[in-house]
């Protein structure tokens, strides 16, 4: 057991965590934020992507203990922090089954926080670790691009 303090979606939390708990488990089980998904457990699908200290990370490849002191944002916070991005996904058909969507949104959010007006290549690089089996990525690309225009305004 290790004691950690994290800032999750703007809220400070202190928790006792088991050594074998991954950040993903902490989020889904201990914090009951089930929006973040697990698709592979080995860093290859991006469904578990959250923003940790400003950067998109695979929460399946971070041990909960390692998140001590970190600021974490999950999909549950986006209504507050990036509604334009969510609307854009809805608008342009970027969602089918939706299982990749939380991860996609978090990768896109991390990008737009850093690069408000990204090039196509920058968007692709930001999303290269997020697999989507349904949409063929085309609508997702478009959604992020359109969202970046809206956010700028």
């Amino acid at each position: 057991m290790n004691k950690i303090t994290i800032n999750i979606n703007g809220e400070e939390r202190t928790l006792e965590v088991k050594s074998n708990l991954r950040l993903l488990d902490l989020i889904r089980e201990d914090l009951a934020l089930t929006g973040t998904k697990e698709g592979c457990g080995v860093g290859e699908c991006g469904a578990c992507t959250v923003i940790m200290n400003g950067e998109a990370v695979n929460s399946c490849l971070v041990m909960a203990t390692q998140a001590d002191g970190a600021t974490i944002e999950t999909v549950e916070n986006l209504e507050k922090s990036a509604p334009e991005l969510q609307e854009s996904f809805v608008e342009h058909g970027a969602i089918q089954c939706g299982f990749c969507t939380p991860g996609m949104l978090m990768s896109a959010k991390a990008l737009l926080d850093k690069v408000p007006n990204p090039s196509d290549m920058q968007i692709k690089t930001a999303l290269e670790g997020n697999m989507c089996r349904c949409t063929g990525y085309i609508p997702i690309m478009k959604s992020v691009k359109e969202a970046s225009k809206k956010i700028k305004k």
């Binding site: 998904k37 697990e38 996904f89 809805v90 939706g98």
Partner: peptide
């Protein structure tokens, strides 16, 4: 999509 809102907010309930 009718189910878009729940899917962009993380509210959709999948099996797990």
């Amino acid at each position: 999509r009718l189910d878009a809102y729940e899917k962009v907010t993380g509210k959709a309930i999948y099996g797990d």
